[in-house]
Amino acid sequence: MIDKSFLRWLDGEEGYGLNTELKDNKVNSPAKKSKADEKEQLSRFNKIYGGLAVAISVLMVVILCVSIITFPTYGSVSNPANNEVVERYVGSAHDETGAENVIAGMILNYRGFDTFGESCVLFLAVCCVMQLLWATDDKIKAEGEKSKREAKPDLILSTCGKLIVPFVLVFGICILFNGHISPGGGFSGGSVLGASVILFAVTYGSKATGRFFTKRVFNIIRISGLMIYAIMFGVYIYQGANGIQSDLAHYIVLVIDLAVGLVVMSTMYGFYSFYTKGDL
């Protein structure tokens, strides 16, 4: 929402903004402003605004380029970022988390709370999108139903989609399950899985997806993903964390990866579904 004071500044009222020209205009003509006057003011404001925007961009380039000079050398071992924390993570990630992919081990084990927050952000985002785009109005809903019934999947798209969908699905599952020993993990695997479900929906029509991905399944998946994450990580922390005295440590990364992947998948499909139909 635009601030009220910004609108007043646009009108050139006293006490709002710094544009003296507009202010003078207001003072000199106490009568009601004509339409042409307003138009002229708006165009003048746009000119000043454009000039200021370019000036700010150029200033930003100069400031950032000056700060580049003080940066440490690119790719050097002696950079301040390459300190003992990195050595600790790389050196003991395999023994403590059981993950060969250090990044997966790091974000799901050492920094597990951070990733839990991320999953919650995704959860909240899909909740917000749901609230904003839910087709509550009966009229809108009826129109949506009508268009949904009328819209057939495109022939070229569905032919191509039938070829691709199984491979994308298998590839997503592969990324998800190999996240701890190769590049990949919950977020990337979940996105590919979500993409495959979206592709399934556009290929076979949303009715086919509605057969297995109902509203109930959607809610169960996204909530149970977060719950699995919270319970597993809570138990892990309670048992002593950092792999000490814990048998859980060697497969916690895989399980949490799966939970994150479920959350991401349902979020991706939820976004698609709410943007296209306003409903699941």
Binding site: V86, V90, G91, S92, H94, E100, N101, I103
Partner: peptide, 19 residues
């Protein structure tokens, strides 16, 4: 991506920015 179980730390880049 560890290939030697993390025995040689000097083989790998900094993983923190990736996270």
């Amino acid at each position: 991506i560890l290939t030697d179980g993390g025995a040689n730390v000097a083989l790998y880049v900094n993983p923190i920015p990736a996270g």
